[in-house]
Computed example of a mutant assay.
Amino acid sequence: MSTIDGLLARTPAPIRRLALRHHELIKFAMVGGTTMVFDMAIFYSLSLTILEQKPVIAKVISGTLATVLSYVLNREWAFKNRGGRETHHEALLFFVISGMGVVLQAAPLFIANNLFDVRNHASVAALVVIDFILGYIIGNVLQMVFRFWALRKFAFPETQGDEDAEIEALATGQVTIGDADPDALGRR
């Protein structure tokens, strides 16, 4: 029995069913948390040093690098049971959708810096807080909602398999995750 199977076996049935039904959202959120930390490390490294006067450029660079990491983690883990598209088509859709997400995430920073000129009116400590709120709270919420919807709809669509029956079998303990048939979930 795997660690995840063991944890699920000890989880109350209603919570287990909820977790299994929303497993993609949970995994997507975990990937998002990981890439957010990666994104923040790069953004602050750039925006507090060589791109101090250009935070939007720093955000686009960090967002682009985090997007590459996100593709690998989402493809291989969060949405591994989805597919139906050629890999190059899927990757193109993922990066177009994620590019739109990077723009959505950078929009609050762009507005604050170009319409309200906050860089010339705030201390470094205040800028760190402002950048965090605009880029990582407001911006991430905007792009996360958009990307989760668009990735499931366009880049990683459901295949012909009956995923609901598989989830119900997992939730009721009739089959364990290790025993689940990946083809039944649409794995390529």
Rank of each mutant, 00 (worst) to 15 (best):
108 P>Q: 03
78 A>D: 08
108 P>L: 00
95 F>S: 12
81 N>F: 08
91 A>K: 13
96 V>T: 15
108 P>F: 01
100 M>S: 12
103 V>T: 05
99 G>H: 11
80 K>C: 10
75 R>V: 02
90 E>M: 12
77 W>N: 03
81 N>S: 06
74 N>H: 01
105 Q>P: 03
98 S>E: 06
84 G>I: 04
95 F>C: 10
103 V>N: 03
107 A>R: 06
102 V>M: 04
90 E>S: 14
79 F>N: 11
83 G>L: 04
86 E>I: 00
93 L>T: 07
77 W>I: 12
105 Q>C: 05
81 N>T: 11
74 N>R: 06
100 M>I: 15
107 A>V: 09
100 M>K: 02
104 L>C: 02
78 A>S: 15
93 L>Y: 09
100 M>W: 04
104 L>F: 12
77 W>F: 11
79 F>R: 08
89 H>I: 10
83 G>E: 02
95 F>H: 12
74 N>T: 08
87 T>Y: 06
97 I>L: 08
101 G>K: 02
94 F>T: 13
103 V>G: 00
81 N>V: 05
94 F>G: 11
91 A>W: 02
76 E>N: 15
90 E>C: 14
77 W>P: 09
105 Q>I: 10
98 S>P: 00
87 T>Q: 07
80 K>Q: 14
94 F>C: 13
89 H>M: 05
108 P>T: 03
99 G>V: 14
95 F>Y: 08
103 V>M: 09
76 E>H: 13
83 G>F: 00
95 F>K: 07
75 R>A: 10
79 F>P: 05
90 E>V: 12
107 A>C: 07
75 R>E: 06
106 A>P: 10
105 Q>T: 08
94 F>E: 09
74 N>C: 08
